[in-house]
Design a protein around this nucleic acid. Sequence first.
DNA 1: GCGATCAGCT
DNA 2: CACAGCTGATCGC
Length: 486
Amino acid sequence: MDLEIRAEDPLSFSDSEELDENGFPLASSSGSDKAESTSEPTSCNDDRPHKKLSEFASDFYASGSDCTSLLRIRNEKKNGLLVQKNLLQMWGIAKSEVAETSESRVCSENRKRKWKGKEQGDVFGLKLNQKKNEKGKKPAHVQSRSCPFYKKIPGTPFTVDAFRYGAIEGCSAYFLTHFHYDHYGGLTKRWCHGPIYCTSITARLLDICLSVNQSYICALEYDKEYEIEGIKVTFIEANHCPGAALIHLRLSDGRTYLHTGDFRASKSMQSHPILLNYHVNVLYLDTTYCNPKYRFPSKEEVIAFVVRTTQKYLQKQPKTLVVVGAYSIGKERVYLEISRSLQVPIYTNASRRRILESFGWSDLSSRLSNSSHSTRLHVLPLSFLRLENLNKYLATLNQRFNAVLAFRPTGWTFSEATGSKLDLIKPTSKGNITIYGVPYSEHSSFNELRDFVKFLRPDKIIPTVNASSIASRDNMQALFNNWLKS
DNA sequence: GCGATCAGCT
DNA sequence: CACAGCTGATCGC
């Protein structure tokens, strides 16, 4: 493999900033500007208010928080890339170009209304002026975007899920924990900054969806120890989406790190040999739901609820179309279990079928259908699951169904009131369309997180989510301290 | 013209 | 809120 970059001192990312014993920025450090690590010099004045209060991971904030997406899927149309304009077009129901489908019309009208309220002219004027004045220069927010410290692993030339920062100084191995946009963002077919280590499923998705140059992709098996740049590396199944991994690192000096990427902690992880055998010094933790209010049921309980709700609806109304919403990858088991219990195939569009088939799960692949007429079970993009959209979708299936039962699986569908009592969930409903939000989470609940940390007993915990506000960080740190005391 | 990235939004 | 995106507009080549 040709490495584009050669770190002069691969064991040190930034020798100019003050670090603690683990290689993290000291709270009292004043060298925040030196933390800049993109290849571009930064010239932005930092007037962020929190700077005065805390220097914790100063470059964390410089990383920006925008999450944009442009998932282009290589279509079946030869080698061309096709951007899918809208769902009804994709299904061949609406004509392209001229086709102003009811769905696209609704959306564009909504946007126009919002846009108008923001004084269109002013916005355009401002942008154009800025562009003229700053010709040749990148906008400030781009210039200031540098790799957050918690994505760099101290004492190693590794970064984790850090692809939006160009070439990172001192990094000669880029790890990708899983194929979700907020983690792979920045990866394109023009990636050339170094080898990407990931699982084989993620590796295939990088090829299928992003056309990343194969020569940069290094697929590692789960539960097998590799030595990369002198560091022992083991991937552990993360219980998140297909191909997601925890990264276990053992340095030659004995330090042990665990980076969870995104994960849902489970009891079975507590019997993993590598987690039992090595004390973890630093834990990089997915703290998405690190708040006691997040108390959702197990995936199995939610699936059981979805299946029995489906069966109940079908008894009352046999001509019901069942719809499950999903992002690119994740939540597969929800529709897989409906498919099993109803003994019907799963219809979804060609792009998603290609992705699902790449997992190499024969049980899933064998249930996929390319015909929307062949089955009452359809998988659609989560964003499409709204009453108006589903109503129109139903109409396109010409009388074959007369009701829609849809499920939106997301960890956000929690309610203090319902808690784990799933049968109290009230769907949103209008006419013959019913949409259930179900708390199917692929991140740890608060209790699962606590139990995992108490099992692992790391010396230090670095939250990788919800760490942008001081209050939130302090809150989490207090929880960690509480969990780890005694 | 095309791919990548933006702000704004959910 | 924020999961993990989605959209049209804009930017760079």
